[in-house]
Design a protein around this nucleic acid. Structure first.
Lengths: 122, 122
DNA sequence: GAAACATATTCCCATATCGGCATGATGCAA
DNA sequence: TTGCATCATGCCGATATGGGAATATGTTTC
C-alpha cells in the first residue's frame, strides 16, 4: 500500500482504495447485489458468480478494505455481510446530476441539429 | 482497444471503457461537476482544476469515450458539455441499496456487540 | 505564409489490477 | 494426529493507467 502523500512521481491514483473503484468492477457489483440477500460464506459467493474461490476471496477483500462488506467468523466459514453505508456518498454525488438527465436529451437534440446544419452547409 | 471477446488470457478488465470507471477518477468527477455550469473549453477546465492542459485533454477524452461528455468545435476552441445520461444507470444501481443504509447501521451494532461478547468470553 | 493560440497525441515510467494456479493457514471431525 | 473443508495469499503474466514532458495538429490572425 503506497503512501501517496510522500510519493512525488505518483504513477497511478490508488484504485482499490475507495468505494468508487471497488464498485467499478462488475464482479464486485454482483457480489454486493448478492449480499443484499443476507450474509454468505465465500464458497457460496464463488458458486453464485461462477468464479473460483481465490477470485471471490480477493474481490471480497477489496470490498472489505473499502468498508462495503463485513466479515464474521463462524466455525471454518467466514460470513460476509453487506455494509452499504459507503454507497451513500456515491448515490448523492450522482444524484446531483439527476436534473441533467432530461436536459441532456434536449441538448443532444440541439447538438445533432447543429451537426445536420453543418452538413447542409458543406 | 483490446478485443476482450477473443483474448483468452484477459489480464485486466477494461477500465476506462465505461461510466463506472470514468467516474471512479476524482479529477474526472470534478470535471463533470464543473460542466454542470455549462460547456467549457479545455483550457478553462484545466485552469479550474489546476491541472495542465494535456491532463485535462486526456480526462476529457475518457469522458467523451464513455459518452459522459460531448464536444462542439467553436473556432479554435473545443467546448465540452455534460451529457449526464450515462450516470443514470449508476444512480439506479446504487439506489437499489438505499434501503440498506440504515439497516447497515443496525447490523453493525449487532456485529460490534458480537465482538464484545467474544472478547468477554476470552 | 508565419506567428500565436488552443488542443490532442505520443513516449516513457512506476505501479496497480485481474486472472490463473499453487500454496499456506486454520478449524473441525474421526 | 490425520484428513478434509474453507479460506486467504503469493507469485506470475499481460495490460491498463495516470502523470510528466515534449511534440504534433488545427485554427485564426497578420
Amino acid at each position: 500500500m503506497p503512501i501517496w502523500e510522500y510519493v512525488s512521481a505518483m504513477a497511478r491514483a490508488a484504485t482499490t482504495s475507495d468505494a468508487w473503484n471497488a464498485v467499478a468492477e462488475p464482479q464486485r457489483r454482483r457480489i454486493l447485489t448478492l449480499l443484499r440477500g443476507g450474509e454468505r460464506p465465500v464458497n457460496e459467493v464463488a458458486r453464485a458468480l461462477s468464479i473460483d474461490q481465490p477470485r471471490a476471496s480477493k474481490h471480497l477483500r477489496v470490498l472489505r478494505e473499502v468498508g462495503l462488506v463485513r466479515v464474521r467468523e463462524e466455525g471454518k466459514q467466514r460470513l460476509y455481510a453487506l455494509d452499504a453505508r459507503g454507497l451513500r456518498p456515491i448515490h448523492e454525488w450522482v444524484g446531483g446530476f439527476e436534473r441533467f438527465w432530461s436536459e441532456s436529451l434536449a441538448r443532444l437534440d440541439v447538438y445533432v441539429r447543429g451537426l445536420a446544419e453543418k452538413e447542409k452547409r458543406r
